[in-house]
């Protein structure tokens, strides 16, 4: 068994590698993950949330004296400082950590819960399926960001509510996706064989059916992480997500808005960060889709 999977993965990786852009995407995300993991080492949280007013709007790659935990030292503002003198680069890196967490958590939530609902709907059919799918239809009828906005507006802006809101709005896609996959797979012969061996429904779904539905889910999940990050940034931009001084790319842009003339760098870089992360995930998603596609197109 293990030999088979190893070979399959190598085969998959070979196909994935063919798409150069997809590899670039993967490298970019790798970079962001490393930066996010090392965020506290590079810039302490207190440093990037505390005010250093005298250094407000320091230019890109400028040196300045800062007060950091009681001591005064020389500091290089890699990407300049914002209106409070906070280091833009540091805030971007910490923001990366926040965004990546939001992306993974919300999508994991949506995949597990949405996927389970979809699997159940597809496998059991009839009434249960109708109820679940109608519920999914209703959730899908409300446009994503609007829905997330409404939830956060109703419950109050906080990190937890943001995760909840984005997680819930991402759900229905996976319900539909997994249900469709399950419906094609459940009539296959190996499922019948498993049933003939006395396997329970739960076991059949978990071990036989779901692994064969994973391909489209993986592709959608990758693109879904990008969407979650964008939603989080949008909501924070409107004041409904992560609140300042906590760094989040969206709220950084919202604060930078007033200084578009005097300090455009505070506006450009956080936005660039959002864009590159989303671009990277889109490239990976595209690459996965091509690599997992059974019809090899040349």
């Amino acid at each position: 068994m293990e030999q088979k999977y190893k070979g399959e993965f190598a085969e998959f990786w070979k196909r994935y590698r063919r798409n150069r852009l997809a590899v670039v995407g993967l490298a970019l995300i790798g970079l962001y993950v490393i930066l996010a993991l090392g965020a506290d080492l590079l810039y302490s949280y207190d440093f990037i949330t505390g005010n250093q007013i005298p250094n407000a709007f320091s230019g890109i790659a400028s040196f300045a004296e800062v007060e950091d935990g009681g001591t005064v030292r020389r500091h290089l503002y890699l990407l300049g400082a914002d209106n409070f003198g906070r280091d833009v680069a540091g805030r971007i890196i910490h923001g990366a950590r926040v965004s990546l967490i939001i992306g993974f958590v919300t999508v994991a939530f949506a995949v597990v819960i949405g996927g389970s609902l979809g699997a159940v709907a597809g496998y059991y059919g009839r009434r249960l399926e109708t109820v679940i799918m109608r519920g999914a239809d209703i959730l899908l009828a409300i446009p994503n960001i609007l829905f997330a906005l409404a939830i956060v507006a109703a419950l109050g802006p906080s990190f937890r509510n943001l995760l909840l809101a984005i997680g819930i709005t991402s759900l229905p896609v996976y319900v539909r996706l997994v249900r469709a996959s399950v419906m094609t797979v459940k009539d296959q012969e190996y499922v019948e064989a498993a049933r003939a061996q006395g396997a329970s429904d739960f076991r059949i779904i978990l071990i036989h059916i779901i692994p064969n539905c994973m391909a489209p889910v993986i592709v959608q999940a990758t693109l879904g992480i990008a969407q979650s990050i964008l939603s989080a940034a949008s909501l924070s931009f409107l004041g409904l997500g992560i609140q300042p001084p906590s760094p989040e790319w969206g709220n950084m842009l919202s604060e930078a808005r007033s200084y578009i003339i005097s300090a455009p760098h505070t506006l450009i870089f956080p936005g660039l960060a959002i864009m590159t992360v989303i671009l990277a995930y889109n490239l990976i998603g595209d690459g996965l889709r091509d690599a997992l596609d059974p019809k090899l197109k040349r």
């Binding site: 964008l230 949008s234 578009i260 506006l267 936005g271 590159t276 989303i278």
Partner: peptide
């Protein structure tokens, strides 16, 4: 284009 946040694009 598909990766660019709309509100940022607007400001840019």
């Amino acid at each position: 284009g598909i990766s660019m946040p709309a509100f940022w694009l607007g400001m840019m």
